[in-house]
C-alpha cells in the first residue's frame, strides 16, 4: 500500500455479526484468502480483514470487521457497528437458536447504523443440508419482511460467499449513484479516494490480486 496513489477509489466498511460459532470468521477467511479453517478458535474481540473488489469498473477496498459473538465482548463490539456501510448478519442453518436470535442482532444493527446501511442475511453451513434446522423458505420470508438481502452459503465449500460480499458492495455502490448515500456524512461507512487519472487503470490490473489480504 505504500506505493503512492491509491489503487482503489472507494473504501467500504463492513461488519460481520451473529451468534458465536455460526461461521463468521470462516466466511471472512474464505472471502479474503479463499481457504477454510476447519477448527477456527474463538475470535477475540474483533478481527479485521481487507480485500479489493471491483464493482462497475471501480476498485473498492472492503474493510471488514468480524466481531466475536460471545456475550462478554458484545458491549464493546457494538461500537464497531457505527459507520458500517454493509452488515453481514449470519446464522447457522443447522442451529435453530442462532436463527431465533436474528431479531435481536437486527435491532442492534438498525439502532447503531444508519438507514442506508445494507444488511445482508447469510444462512451459513449450507453444505450440512442433512442437519438442516431452518428451512430456506422460512429464512427467505424473514429476509423479505425485514427488507434484507439473503443467501444460503457455505464458508466450507465457498458456495455463495463471494456473492454475499459482492452483492452487498453493489447495493452500496448503487446507493451512492442514486444519491441515497451521502459520501460526506460522517458515518456513511464509505470513503472516496480519488485516484490519479491515467495512472489508475495501469496499477489496477497489475496489483489487483496481490492485495487480497492487506493485513
Amino acid at each position: 500500500m505504500s506505493a503512492g496513489p491509491y489503487n482503489y477509489s472507494y473504501i467500504f466498511k463492513y461488519i460481520i455479526i451473529g451468534d458465536m460459532g455460526v461461521g463468521k470468521s470462516c466466511l471472512l477467511h474464505q472471502f479474503t484468502e479463499k481457504k477454510f479453517m476447519a477448527d477456527c478458535p474463538h475470535t477475540i474481540g474483533v478481527e479485521f480483514g481487507t480485500r479489493i473488489i471491483e464493482v462497475s469498473g471501480q476498485k473498492i477496498k472492503l474493510q471488514i470487521w468480524d466481531t466475536a459473538g460471545q456475550e462478554r465482548f458484545r458491549a464493546v463490539t457494538r461500537s464497531y457497528y457505527r459507520g458500517a456501510a454493509g452488515a453481514l448478519m449470519v446464522y447457522d442453518i443447522t442451529r435453530r437458536s442462532t436463527y431465533n436470535h436474528l431479531s435481536s442482532w437486527l435491532t442492534d444493527t438498525r439502532n447503531l447504523t444508519n438507514p442506508s446501511t445494507v444488511i445482508f442475511l447469510i444462512g451459513n453451513k449450507c453444505d450440512l443440508d442433512a442437519q438442516r434446522d431452518v428451512t430456506y423458505e422460512e429464512a427467505s420470508k424473514f429476509a423479505e419482511e425485514n427488507g434484507l438481502m439473503f443467501v444460503e452459503a457455505s464458508a466450507k465449500t465457498g458456495d455463495n460467499v463471494e456473492e454475499a460480499f459482492l452483492e452487498t458492495a453493489k447495493k452500496i455502490y448503487q446507493s451512492i449513484q442514486d444519491g441515497r448515500l451521502d459520501l460526506n456524512a460522517a458515518e456513511s461507512g464509505v470513503q472516496h479516494k480519488p485516484s490519479q487519472p491515467g495512472r489508475n487503470n495501469l496499477s489496477n490490473d497489475q496489483q489487483g490480486n496481490k492485495d487480497n489480504c492487506a493485513c
Binding site: 505504500s2 470468521s25 477467511h29 478458535p41 475470535t43 477475540i44 478481527e47 480483514g49 493485513c215
Partner: peptide, 21 residues
C-alpha cells in the same frame, strides 16, 4: 499456547509491517 491462531498471526504480521514502515 495456541499455535496457528490466524487472528494472532495476522496481528504479528501487522506489527511487523508497521515496524518495517
Amino acid at each position: 499456547i495456541e499455535p496457528g491462531n490466524q487472528q494472532v498471526i495476522t496481528l504479528q504480521q501487522t506489527i511487523k509491517k508497521k515496524m518495517e514502515k
